[in-house]
Design a protein around this nucleic acid. Structure first.
Lengths: 241, 241
DNA sequence: TAGTGGTCTAGACCACTAG
DNA sequence: TAGTGGTCTAGACCACTAG
């Protein structure tokens, strides 16, 4: 049950939208008419409308009114944490390499480096019952002032590694996910037959100013990587209740 | 530049959090002290704090204060629309089957059906330059009252099909994504060699009352499916500015 | 010109926290 | 007991929309 007036406003309008009484594109009652309906003031009505806006149910157009959104069925929340997937199966994670190298052309492009700037490489291999199942390689711009702590690196996710080194609160992470047949280095480390399906997850990290601060790929033996995502639509408003 | 007082509050506090001046877990200044600092009233300060809360920067504890959140690097936004991926490559989408069947045990379980309730099957195959690359199969509970319009089904996403049939505003969609080697039926339709890597995307749809209203899988030839996701963290608040 | 949403004021009362 | 955030009131002025 709604314990406050604004919750009542939210529940009533949300239910009307979900039942199709209010359809996408249609105008909802104006703030002043809602004030009368609920015998309350504008600020209270607006608190409810703000929650409906946050939840993706309505949007407002100054001077005109508030309208029901087109539902967005495409937006999903993907909870991706490389270490969760690794920990789920791994009994051992081996640090293959932590090094400072001169960047390749690809790295200069991806991390937008100056030509003489060094990069840190981190390569890890995770085993499940002696079978290697995840191989990952990460690059980040080298910064003399910031030491690399191996114990941290071994068990941290990429955003954690970068955020720790750069003391960033928010690191933007762009994921690209695809499938490929194992070949070359991947076969060597993951000990698969040639052509074995791999799930590849590429991560590109950016700081607040959109500067690349990390780039890496994780190769999972296909059978070890299941990803889960949920449409974010209904979820967004629930935090509040 | 901030054109309103509450935007100024948001920008100042957000910048302090991003620079590490305010660290996760620390308390931010109280509402009353922010009122003094910005020479404004509580409702205006609270509007700014509401946006910071929405953006995942702070949370409040009644009686105690407002605190800086631990950043959540795991939450990503995945924009997944099966038809976008299909349209990107397809020059033809063939409706293989639209049928009403008696459910298998698996279907009864997945869709929580009563034993005698029929289900609708929809199977499609998409071609890129005569090469089949996406095979998908969808099931939804059969409802006598709701006709199945083939022209719609051929080009609609699963949530669209279900939402249209059930006049639902919000359908919850649970995605599971994994990799498998092509075998059996998949080889037959996608005309791949055995063991070819496939990206499998399973969709399970629920109505407002968490009742399953659709279940299906899409099999992509691996090379045709790249998924993109972005950490949602910084994005959430930007809508407002 | 009447109606709309956006911003803001200056209060009130409440439950809760922690010394 | 002083301080905190949560809810709510009853206004004000504004820019904008559309007849």
């Amino acid at each position: 049950m709604a314990s406050t007036i604004y919750e009542q406003v939210v529940e009533d309008i949300r239910s009307k939208i979900n039942k199709g009484i209010l359809k996408p594109g249609e105008m909802i009652p104006s703030e002043s008419s809602l004030c009368k309906e609920y015998n309350t003031t504008r600020m209270t009505v607006r608190k409810g409308l703000a929650l409906l806006t946050e939840g993706g149910y309505i949007y407002s157009v100054p001077g005109k009114g508030s309208f029901v959104c087109e539902p967005d069925h495409n937006r999903h929340i993907l909870h991706f944490n490389e270490m969760d997937i690794i920990k789920e199966h791994a009994d051992r994670t081996q640090l293959l390499e932590v090094n400072i190298i001169s960047p390749t052309e690809e790295l200069i492009k991806q991390l937008q480096l100056k030509r003489k700037q060094k990069t840190v490489v981190i390569r890890r291999l995770s085993y499940s019952q002696r079978e290697p199942f995840a191989y990952d390689i990460k690059y980040l711009p080298y910064d003399k002032g910031k030491p690399i702590v191996e114990e941290v690196i071994q068990y941290a996710t990429f955003p954690e590694i970068v955020a720790a080194r750069m003391s960033l609160f928010s690191v933007k992470n762009e994921l690209t996910i695809w499938v490929k047949k194992a070949q070359g280095e991947e076969i060597k480390f993951l000990k698969t037959e040639e052509g074995h399906p791999l799930m590849v997850i590429e991560q590109k990290l950016f700081d607040d100013g959109n500067k690349p601060v990390g780039w890496g790929k994780i190769y999972f033996r296909g059978e070890y990587c299941h990803l889960h995502a949920v449409s974010s639509f209904n979820d967004r408003i629930k935090r509040t209740f």
